[in-house]
Design a protein around this nucleic acid. Structure first.
Length: 881
RNA sequence: GGGAGCUUAGCUCAGCUGGUUCAGAGCACCUGCCUUACAAGCAGGGGGUCACUGGUUCGAACCCAGUAGUUCCCA
């Protein structure tokens, strides 16, 4: 059979993914084996696969595939998140494009549109994950807003309300004027911005004097209800008891004195706008100031402002500055840098706003979750995130869980027309309960709370409800078999940006409802950036399309490319050339296979000595490296595990092992290979394919089936992970010497322009060399020697080099430039003498000898004697020239 | 403003308990090769004051203190 010279990924990908799913290799049901479980961080149902998803899903797939091979019952649960703000915003925009305003629709009609859209486009991202090779159990796919999971969310709300952990109240919240909803503190992203600090003159009542106030938000002047200064600020003590006239609206407001004000910022005088700043709000509470809400919910100037009504807040900011300047009320304008809050979901500038919201008390609930991480019950990888986590958990605020949206789980709170509130699942129940408080209540007058719950209030249950949506209702004792089997899950792989949004809250919910952690290890990936270190974003257009990458480099190539340089917790600077490297590696593997499958087995061929020793070496090498790879995995050092695999295959197997055992050509014809060597080689290839499989699932499955006839279910995806055998350290060391000798001979060829085809002679002068003589045949083959012999005497007229303590000679009479050779040897001698000196200084230092560990001293003594030998040898060589 | 991390070759990173021949890898680079598996390759090679300053130690990339730059988190 003719096999293509380059590997064709598309063919293998389109063949094996369907095969794996048809044969149910991804499917998991509880059995006698130990479970290994990962729940996917559910991507937004409206999302499109980006490089961040590629990275963390590749890692999850590597972990799950290896666990499967190690004999665990591996279960990777996929699904999507309803992402209330993001999805609602998308649907609103889509409807707007069709000329439909959300405000013209009823809640029911809007939700119909939203569900219709979700059914049509939702879950595209899961289809994309299949191209990557993700081995999720698709039969378990979940959606955070499907009825069963929504039920659980409602149950949790009711339960926590009954436990007095959820309350409702008017608070200053982060308002998203574009999404028209409150968002939690965690959903506000603070970015540095260039702002104008405007110094505005406020007239002092009954006087011609002014007090100057510095503000970055002049458009809120209409909401000012006081001016505040620090009581210790001597500049202003004379103003005690005075009133101030707010410009634009000419409102008379008091001047108040409070230590909150920083006398060194601006003019030391602060305008107090209780409706539009949390600190001003607190001052307002303290001094009983009126609250004037000068903005509407969509960020325009409100009726209450009394001026600029209906104008956008930013347009108003410009206009008001201009107008104040014209009135001579602007003293100066400074350019400053400050932090401005943006909505995580809509990128609109957040407006602090007073409103009635639902909150979850976090103080008590966060304690067991903090404990779980601090005592290592839940491990964060890398560990540096423990500090961040601790800091957040110790300073956690109550969680604003209501959102003024329709897409999501509607809050199960019910109100009658007298202001009574009950929390329960159905209107009927609400009716019964409200009757206890209000005997005349009419069923039709009962209204459900209009708001929905924060998306994270559903995703914090994800590791529980994907297995048992009834867990909240039934409790952990009565949990179903799935949950008891798979929970706590093993590893969670996600970005550090959702450490608080999601990870911390899952631990809280897990502890609250099962008393157990939701997962044992959290692997925090970095953020994927472009090679200039910029975050990948649509605006910059620097984010490659993952599916295009896959079609260009193959799924295996992209997987390897992504993981080659992505240490946990560090950002990865993505460069397409990494994928190229991944593709090249796949091609290398492909060609190693081509070589092996082209071997022609001879019936009466005896095994060459070189092949025999190469086999002896490689079996040790394979075990040695596999042990290292296993160790990297156990420490979640993914890049290291991959790199060790890469080098084992490319360097050890291809560059050394295959080069030794590959039959020679005689008269243009490849010689047949002996059976022992052939079988050993196939064996090694199979082991290597298994070790490579988690990284490169497609090519390994493809070659696995090309090496042998396989039964229907005999696939590499379920093959057993190779085991580590004890290694002979001496063999491994000896081969390192072999590599060095071969490299030295090649080096001489390069320097002297001797063709690789010309056979050379090598003589070794050493006391110990012969104990490794079984490796001589390997050297002869790889260095292309005519002979390899031992001598007790030095060899005249030859190039020399040293490896360890042995001297090697390549006789090349007539070819030697004596002066050049002398110079080279002199240099080497100089170096070794210097080295000897430093070792001897160390050894003659009494404090070193008395303080250092004995084995360290032993090493130094060895260095000394080795150096002495080497110097002697070099001197002899020099003398012979 | 508070906190955490990072700074090692041109780039991306290892360096785990302070101790093997003046610090390792991959990529990139340079030189020579289309040698019957692979030019997506082979062989060989060059490249580093371990951010800076000081301290501890027989010994520091590693421990401590300070400085600078940088990233992230929180307010």
């Amino acid at each position: 059979m003719e096999i293509a010279k380059t590997y064709n990924p598309q063919e293998a990908e389109s063949k094996w993914y369907p095969y794996w799913t048809e044969k149910n290799f991804f499917k998991s049901t509880p059995d006698h084996r130990k479970a290994y479980t990962i729940v996917i961080p559910p991507p937004n149902v409206t999302g499109v696969l980006h490089m961040g998803h590629m990275l963390n899903n590749t890692i999850q797939d590597v972990l799950i595939r290896r666990a499967r091979m190690l004999g665990f019952n591996a279960c990777w649960v996929p699904g999507t998140d309803h992402a209330s703000i993001a999805t609602e915003a998308k649907v609103v925009k889509l409807l707007a494009d069709q000329g439909i305003k959300k405000t013209d629709l009823s809640r029911e009609d809007f939700l119909k549109h939203a569900w219709g859209w979700k059914e049509k486009y939702g879950g595209i991202i899961l289809e994309q994950l299949k191209h990557l090779g993700a081995s999720c159990d698709w039969s378990r796919t979940r959606f955070t807003m499907e009825p069963e999971l929504s039920d659980a969310v409602i149950d949790v709300f009711i339960d926590l309300y009954n436990k007095k952990k959820i309350y409702r109240g008017v608070r200053m919240v982060n308002w998203d004027p574009q999404g028209l909803t409150a968002v939690s503190d965690e959903e506000v992203i603070h970015k540095e911005a260039n702002s104008k600090l405007v110094y505005v003159k406020y007239k002092i009542e009954n006087s011609n004097e002014f007090i100057t106030v510095a503000t970055t938000r002049p458009e809120t002047i209409m909401g000012d209800t006081a001016v505040c200064v620090n009581p210790h600020d001597e500049r202003y003590t004379k103003l005690k008891g005075k009133n101030i006239i707010v410009p634009v609206v000419n409102r008379v407001v008091p001047i108040i004195f409070d230590e909150y004000v920083d006398a060194s910022f601006g003019t030391g005088a602060l305008k107090v706008t209780p409706a539009h700043d949390i600190n001003d709000f607190n001052l307002g509470q303290k001094y009983k100031l009126p609250v004037i809400d000068a903005l509407t919910q969509d960020g325009k100037i409100s009726e209450a402002a009394g001026a600029y009504v209906g104008m956008d807040r930013f347009a108003c900011r410009k206009q008001i500055i201009k107008d104040l300047q014209e009135q001579g009320l602007v003293e100066k304008i400074e350019e400053i840098k400050n932090k401005v809050g943006y909505s995580e979901r809509t990128d609109a500038v957040i407006e602090p706003r007073l409103s009635m919201q639902w909150f979850l008390k976090m103080e008590d609930m966060s304690k067991p979750a903090l404990e779980a991480v601090l005592n290592n019950d839940v491990k964060l990888i890398p560990e540096k995130f423990i500090n961040t986590y601790k800091h957040w958990m110790e300073n956690v605020h109550d969680w604003c869980i209501s959102r003024q949206l329709w897409w999501g789980q509607q809050i199960p709170a019910w109100y009658d027309d007298k202001g009574n509130t009950v929390v329960c699942k159905t209107k009927q129940e609400a009716f019964e309960k409200l009757k206890e408080q209000n005997a005349e209540v009419k069923f039709l007058d009962i209204k459900q709370d209009e708001d929905v719950l924060d998306t994270w209030f559903s995703s914090w249950l994800w590791p529980l409800t994907v297995f048992d949506p009834d867990i909240i209702k039934n409790g952990w004792e009565k949990a179903n078999a799935d949950l008891k089997y798979y929970y706590p899950t093993n590893d969670l792989v996600t970005g550090p940006d959702i450490l608080f949004f999601w990870i911390a809250r899952m631990i809280i919910a897990g502890k609250e409802y099962t008393g157990l952690k939701p997962f044992s290890n959290v692997y925090l990936t970095g953020i994927v950036r472009d090679k200039l270190g910029r975050k990948m974003s649509k605006q910059l257009g620097n984010s490659p399309d993952p599916l295009e990458l896959i079609s260009k480099y193959g799924a295996d190539g992209v997987r390897v490319g992504l993981l080659l340089s992505s240490p946990a917790g560090n950002d990865i600077l993505f460069d397409e050339s990494h994928c190229e490297q991944g593709r090249n590696f796949a091609n290398k593997v492909w060609n190693a296979f081509r070589l092996i499958q082209g071997f022609e087995m001879g019936t009466n061929v005896s095994q060459p000595e070189a092949s025999k020793t190469a086999i002896e070496w490689f079996s040790n090498r394979l075990s040695e490296q596999l042990e290292i790879i296993n160790d990297h995995y156990s420490k979640y050092r993914m890049s290291d595990a991959l790199m060790a695999t890469y080098k084992l295959v490319w360097d050890d197997f291809c560059a050394w092992y295959l080069e030794v055992i590959k039959p020679e050509f005689v008269d243009g014809k490849a010689q047949p290979i002996d059976k022992i060597t052939f079988d050993a080689t196939i064996n090694y290839l199979e082991s290597l394919l298994k070790i490579m499989h988690p990284w490169m699932p497609f090519i390994t499955e493809e070659i696995w089936h090309l090496t042998k006839e396989r039964a229907e279910m005999e696939c590499i995806i379920v093959a057993e992970w190779p085991t580590v055998n004890t290694q002979n350290k001496e063999t491994l060391q000896a081969f390192e010497v072999v590599k060095e000798v071969v490299a030295q001979v090649r080096n001489i060829r390069q320097q002297k322009n001797i063709s690789p085809k010309e056979k050379l002679e090598v003589k070794e002068r050493s006391d110990v060399g012969e104990q490794f003589s079984r490796f001589d045949s390997v050297v002869i083959k790889l260095a292309n020697l005519s002979s390899y012999s031992y001598t007790k005497d030095k060899v005249e007229g030859a190039f020399g080099f040293m490896v360890m303590n042995a001297e090697f000679f390549v006789p090349l009479t007539g070819n030697i430039n004596v002066a050049e050779e002398k110079e080279r040897l002199a240099k080497e001698l100089e170096y070794n003498k210097g080295f000897l000196r430093s070792v001897q200084i160390k050894l003659s230092n009494e404090r070193f000898v008395s303080n250092a560990k004995p084995e360290i001293i032993e090493v130094e003594r060895k260095k000394e004697s080795d150096a002495l030998n080497k110097i002697k040898a070099i001197e002899e060589q020099l003398a012979s020239l």
